[in-house]
């Protein structure tokens, strides 16, 4: 069983405030789920461990991912305004945050 302290530690890493009740629930849920993951220990993946194969992407699709050119893309000026307007706290067209230091 995953401990209460472990849940608190992960929650802090994830920037998530949890109530006492939530921590208790997560202890139970996470333990059951992490136990289930142990099934993967049986899967023989030595082939990848040995040849250090590239595990990223879906290259088996037979098509390559293509990045677009590194250039500015024209967007209406209203978009910037829309994006700033979505911020809960803003001032003079800027997003406002609390002091960090």
């Amino acid at each position: 069983m995953i401990t209460k302290e472990e849940v608190q530690h992960i929650a802090k890493l994830a920037r998530l405030e949890l109530s006492e009740k939530e921590i208790e629930n997560m202890q139970k849920d996470l333990s059951a789920i992490l136990d289930y993951f142990r099934l993967l220990e049986k899967a023989n993946t030595r082939i990848y461990a040995d040849n250090n194969a590239d595990l990223r992407g879906n290259e088996k699709r037979g098509k390559k991912n293509e990045l677009r050119g590194d250039e500015a893309v024209g967007k209406p000026a209203s978009l910037a305004n829309n994006l700033v307007q979505a911020a809960p706290d803003k001032k003079d067209g800027y997003v406002k945050v609390k002091a960090i230091l």
Binding site: L13, L16, L18, L30, I33, L34
Partner: peptide, 10 residues
Amino acid sequence: PKRRILIGTY
């Protein structure tokens, strides 16, 4: 989402 964020972070 909280559950998944925690599992993923773990």
